[in-house]
Lab assay of single mutants.
Amino acid sequence: MAAGGDHGSPDSYRSPLASRYASPEMCFVFSDRYKFRTWRQLWLWLAEAEQTLGLPITDEQIQEMKSNLENIDFKMAAEEEKRLRHDVMAHVHTFGHCCPKAAGIIHLGATSCYVGDNTDLIILRNALDLLLPKLARVISRLADFAKERASLPTLGFTHFQPAQLTTVGKRCCLWIQDLCMDLQNLKRVRDDLRFRGVKGTTGTQASFLQLFEGDDHKVEQLDKMVTEKAGFKRAFIITGQTYTRKVDIEVLSVLASLGASVHKICTDIRLLANLKEMEEPFEKQQIGSSAMPYKRNPMRSERCCSLARHLMTLVMDPLQTASVQWFERTLDDSANRRICLAEAFLTADTILNTLQNISEGLVVYPKVIERRIRQELPFMATENIIMAMVKAGGSRQDCHEKIRVLSQQAASVVKQEGGDNDLIERIQVDAYFSPIHSQLDHLLDPSSFTGRASQQVQRFLEEEVYPLLKPYESVMKVKAELCL
């Protein structure tokens, strides 16, 4: 049975990233139509530049190519590739079939990587351009969430054990800070992308030097003109047959890092959902379990974690691919890159769409948070109580021993009897502590235990987050809708 299948058929496997999760716009960027249309555009740009620099290419040939950029006979191309065992030459023939007058000058002087690699770089750039505003929107939604809850005390956790208090907004800023680093890295790697350009079979530009009869300047002009037509500021000066596969490492490393950030955020949300302090959106008709109707599973956060793990592992592909590119190139890269580049971007696209949807509907339960604080705060307040007693004339050592005994009794009630923490009640009825009984409410005010959390939130948002989001103001209103 021949390899390949009808990918629109229910009898043929289709990647869930495309069929179930990723956005239509990201799927289109990695589609065959987008790819092969870009090949034709690159052939047109090459012909236009070659004509401008004096090669015998007519206006009629150029116009014929322009008129057929979208006229792609995919069936013919597939048949040609089956016959020739070469995808680029299959599309040269297919393009030439609908451009008979231009057929002889299509791909003039070029090698397969002229269309293959340059198209990949265009796709990487455009895919990054799709991700950047999506990530900015996630940051914006979380920034709104953090600002609104900047002063809401909550129990902090280290080692997932109760620690000092923080605020809900401050905790959210930990998430935002990681995503801001990801946004900066995505922008950097996007701006650092260079075009492969017009380089020939081993990167020496020998074929173009021959076409222009040894004119170095025209060869350099050709490279520059096509690079500018493709919208790049610069091209690699040095290439082998391909652009260095280190570029793929750079791009997928940034995406993998984004995956790590999203995994951490969504894990926190899942843990908070278990504590009943916070939940992701839950639709009115949504079913959490087929057997347990009360369940409210954090399905979206779980999906993000599941896909983020996949995204983090994909960076190993370009690392290994770059390491086995012998001399000017081997074909070890080809099949692998067809999979890992598309999957990385479709996965990143999915987790950003999902995280935006989550961040637009996060639900906080202040009463649950308050109750958990009441359970733990008495123990945390013991040092403040000791200091207040010393100020009232008591002995630190005597007070410490009193607190120690009462704390152990209260802990026994919590752990052995399943009761509430009654340390404060014990202190309130103990005559030894009568000098500070009137101060206990103040000493137990949760806001006095959150330090500068709310001020940190305000400063972080104003100095770091809002300036970073400013270039994306025009796209901030787009909502994230999930079908599944």
Rank of each mutant, 00 (worst) to 15 (best):
A2Y: 13
A3W: 03
A3P: 11
G4H: 11
G4W: 01
H7L: 13
G8Q: 14
G8I: 01
S9K: 11
P10G: 09
D11W: 14
Y13A: 12
R14L: 15
R14I: 13
S15R: 10
A18D: 15
A18P: 10
A18W: 13
Y21S: 14
A22L: 15
S23V: 11
P24N: 15
E25A: 04
E25P: 00
E25T: 12
M26N: 04
M26G: 09
M26L: 08
C27A: 04
V29S: 03
V29Q: 15
Y34H: 09
F36W: 09
T38N: 00
W39H: 12
W39I: 04
L42G: 04
L42I: 10
W43M: 10
E48N: 10
E48I: 11
E50F: 05
L53V: 07
G54V: 03
L55W: 11
P56I: 11
I57R: 07
D59I: 02
K66L: 05
S67G: 11
S67W: 03
N68G: 08
L69C: 15
N71D: 07
N71A: 04
I72K: 06
D73S: 01
F74H: 00
M76E: 03
A78L: 10
E79G: 06
E81L: 02
E81T: 05
K82F: 09
K82I: 08
K82E: 05
R83W: 02
D87W: 14
D87L: 04
T94W: 12
T94M: 00
H97Y: 00
P100H: 00
A102K: 03
A103L: 05
A103S: 08
I106H: 12
T111W: 03
S112M: 12
S112W: 03
S112T: 14
C113E: 06
Y114G: 02
V115A: 02
V115S: 04
N118T: 05
T119E: 03
D120L: 06
I122R: 09
R125S: 11
A127W: 00
L131S: 05
L132D: 15
K134H: 01
L135W: 05
L135K: 08
R137G: 13
R137M: 10
V138G: 01
I139N: 10
R141Q: 01
D144K: 05
D144V: 10
F145M: 00
E148N: 11
E148Y: 09
R149I: 01
S151G: 07
T154W: 04
G156W: 03
F157G: 01
T158C: 01
T158L: 11
H159F: 01
Q161F: 00
P162I: 06
T166E: 00
T167L: 00
G169A: 01
K170M: 15
R171Q: 05
R171T: 01
C173I: 05
C173V: 03
C173G: 03
L174M: 14
L174D: 13
W175Y: 00
I176Q: 07
L183M: 03
R190C: 01
D191K: 04
D192G: 11
L193G: 09
G197W: 00
V198G: 04
G200K: 01
T204C: 07
Q205M: 09
A206L: 06
F208R: 08
G214S: 12
G214C: 00
V219M: 14
Q221T: 05
D223Q: 15
K224F: 07
K229P: 00
G231N: 14
F232G: 07
A235C: 06
A235F: 14
A235T: 11
F236D: 05
F236P: 13
T239C: 15
Q241K: 05
T242K: 04
T242W: 05
Y243N: 15
Y243W: 11
R245F: 00
V247Q: 06
V247H: 12
D248T: 08
E250T: 05
L252M: 13
L252T: 15
S253I: 15
S257F: 11
A260I: 08
V262E: 02
L271A: 15
L271M: 10
L272V: 12
L272M: 15
K276A: 04
E279V: 05
E283T: 14
K284L: 09
Q286Y: 13
I287H: 06
S289W: 00
S290F: 03
S290G: 09
A291E: 11
P293K: 11
R296D: 15
N297P: 07
P298F: 15
P298L: 06
M299R: 11
M299E: 10
S301I: 08
S301A: 03
L307E: 14
A308N: 05
A308R: 05
R309H: 09
R309I: 15
H310M: 03
M312E: 14
T313Q: 05
M316W: 03
D317H: 03
L319M: 12
Q320C: 14
Q320W: 07
T321V: 05
T321Y: 02
S323F: 13
E328N: 08
R329K: 08
R329C: 14
T330R: 05
L331K: 00
L331V: 09
L331T: 15
A335H: 00
N336A: 11
C340A: 14
A342T: 09
E343W: 07
A344R: 08
F345R: 06
L346T: 05
A348H: 01
A348Q: 08
D349Y: 09
T354R: 07
L355F: 02
N357L: 07
S359C: 01
E360Y: 05
V364I: 01
V364P: 00
V364G: 13
P366S: 09
V368N: 01
V368F: 14
R372E: 09
R372W: 07
I373A: 11
L377A: 09
M380Y: 14
T382Q: 13
I385P: 09
I385V: 05
I386N: 04
M387L: 03
V390G: 09
A392H: 12
G394P: 15
S395N: 13
S395L: 03
R396D: 14
D398F: 01
H400L: 06
E401H: 10
E401T: 15
K402E: 10
R404Y: 11
R404M: 15
R404E: 06
S407L: 15
Q408W: 05
A410S: 14
Q416V: 08
E417D: 09
E417G: 13
G418P: 01
V429G: 14
D430F: 06
D430R: 01
A431Y: 01
Y432N: 15
Y432G: 03
F433N: 01
S434Y: 04
P435I: 12
S438E: 00
Q439W: 02
Q439G: 07
D441A: 02
D441M: 06
L443P: 01
F449P: 04
T450S: 01
R452C: 06
S454W: 02
Q456I: 11
E462Q: 14
E462T: 00
P467R: 11
E473W: 12
E473I: 05
S474F: 13
K477A: 13
K479R: 14
A480D: 03
E481N: 10
E481F: 00
